[in-house]
């Protein structure tokens, strides 16, 4: 049986780690390679780098961060943020990334999912979905461009389409829960998990170690992702894992 995964996320801008609360108010929290190695030692099962650089130079820096990280850590890692071409994917995978996260570009051009899956394998393609509850619809809507732009697409339909096109995993961020520290969005995570057969990484809202237990059991997630709480040492990965182990959840 596969172990549930705990995944710290590092938002990287121009080669430095930053984390936005509700996607704004960035704070500098360190060197990505060093932080990645630290999380590996602390028991992280995987890492996600989200590149939020806007410039060409910033993106070039990310390749170097990936190359150095691949040499330092012994766990798989995903790189996402602003990736819109097969060539971008190839460069990052060659630099040592294990998986590529695509978001806005996949919504705009869903064929990117199938092209990537065919060329590199489904296991390399993570489709990141930012979802927010739409009261008028009574269900969740996909947002693009770092959560700024409503797409008019229903999240549950989109994840099914992503799976059909060959996505290997869904990285699901609840915009409603993100930054609240009130816990993961259980309803959204469960609805998505029950709609598809590929693994779901739940993101947004982790504030206490118990939140991971909730999202793995009630939310049916395969992995839980968090940033702030780990970066600012509000809890350690080991504390989260001890809690899960104590409650009988299979972890590494």
């Amino acid at each position: 049986m596969l172990a549930k995964r705990i995944i710290p996320c590092l938002d990287v801008k121009d080669g430095r780690v930053v984390k936005g609360v509700n996607f704004v108010n960035l704070r500098d929290a360190g060197d990505p390679v060093e932080l990645a190695a630290l999380y590996d030692r602390e028991g992280a099962d995987e890492l996600v780098f989200l590149d939020i650089s806007a410039s060409v130079e910033g993106r070039a820096t990310m390749i170097e961060v990936v190359r150095q990280t691949a040499g330092e850590i012994a766990i798989p890692f995903t790189v996402g943020g602003g990736i819109s071409h097969i060539d971008d994917m190839k460069r990052l995978l060659r630099a040592g990334a294990d998986k590529i996260g695509i978001n806005t570009a996949a919504v705009r051009n869903p064929q990117l999912i199938s092209d990537g899956a065919r060329k590199f394998g489904s296991q390399c393609i993570v489709v990141a979905v930012d979802a927010k509850f739409n009261d008028a619809w009574g269900e969740w809507e996909v947002y693009t461009h770092g959560g700024r732009t409503p797409s008019g697409i229903r999240a549950l339909e989109w994840v099914r389409e992503a799976e059909r096109l060959g996505a290997g995993e869904i990285l699901l961020t609840s915009m409603d829960a993100d930054g609240t520290k009130d816990g993961f969005d259980i309803r959204l995570t469960r609805a998505v998990s029950e709609s598809i057969g590929i693994p779901v990484i739940a993101s947004g809202g982790a504030g206490k170690k118990e939140h991971f237990y909730d999202v793995f059991t009630e939310g049916k997630a395969d992995a839980g992702l968090a940033a702030t709480i780990f970066h600012y040492k509000e809890m350690t990965i080991q504390e989260v894992k001890d809690d899960l182990l104590h409650k009988g959840v299979e972890i590494r």
Binding site: M1, L2, A3, R5, D45, G121, S122, Q123, G168, G197, I198, P199, D222, R252
Partner: peptide, 10 residues
């Protein structure tokens, strides 16, 4: 069960 077999296993 899911294929590929992907993740941490004992």
């Amino acid at each position: 069960y899911k294929v590929p077999h992907m993740g941490w296993n004992r």
